[in-house]
């Protein structure tokens, strides 16, 4: 995974609550067997009409936000299905940061596995960011979102932060604990399924 670096980008304001992963990537696009190529299907039913034409009033079709890397949204983002395809689609479309007052658990965890940073902010700060039209600077290292002369601090688990900043592979890290896993297995009473 590529290390997560500083981001300068405008913020795409997407003021919706309870956005579920069925909306982020509808099921008809879950049949690929690769991790790439999902961006064109992001929010498909909201972005395109029944003839496959872009809907003019949908925010992601607004050319202003074409190069935006930061999506700001409302509570309980990513609820529902565990499909990691939702994160692959957001990332492939260009988003590296999702900001929301709250995330669904599985989606939140899936983000970190793909170098996407989910940031939890309170409603007051969300409202502030929704109004900003200029570029902001997002610095994971100092945990700041900087705009003009102002900044907002955000919280993140230090363990997850290091993994993102260094682009570490989870499985490599776990395999360093191999001896402990083996010891656990020696003492575990769990039967194999096929005795």
């Amino acid at each position: 995974m590529k290390p997560f670096s500083k981001i300068n980008s405008i913020v795409t304001p997407f003021d919706k609550a309870n956005v579920d992963t069925d909306q982020i990537i509808p099921k008809q696009f879950l049949k690929l067997i690769t991790k790439s190529g999902f961006g064109k299907f992001l929010f498909y039913d909201w972005r395109f009409d029944h003839n496959g034409q872009p809907k003019g009033d949908f925010i992601l079709n607004d050319p202003t936000y074409k190069d935006s890397k930061i999506l700001i949204t409302n509570e309980n983002f990513g609820c529902g299905s565990s499909r990691e395809h939702a994160v692959w689609a957001l990332k492939d479309f260009g988003f590296s940061v999702i900001i929301s007052p709250s995330f669904a658990d599985i989606f939140y965890s899936n983000c970190f596995k793909n170098g996407v940073l989910p940031i939890i902010l309170d409603i007051k700060n969300i409202k502030k960011l929704l109004e900003i039209r200029d570029e902001v600077e997002l610095d994971l290292n100092s945990q700041k979102i900087i705009f003009g002369n102002e900044f907002i601090n955000f919280e993140i688990d230090s363990h997850r932060k290091i993994r993102l900043l260094e682009g570490l592979d989870d499985i490599d890290l776990t395999l360093k604990e191999d001896q402990k896993i083996e010891n656990f297995e020696k003492n575990s009473s769990i039967a194999s399924i096929f005795e």
């Binding site: 499909r83 395809h85 776990t174």
Partner: peptide
């Protein structure tokens, strides 16, 4: 509990998961 595909890979490879 449900997991994403990266965690499926992690479980296949290590039979464990990092969880809060």
């Amino acid at each position: 509990f449900g997991i994403g595909t990266s965690e499926v890979e992690h479980t296949l490879a290590t039979q464990t998961l990092w969880l809060e």
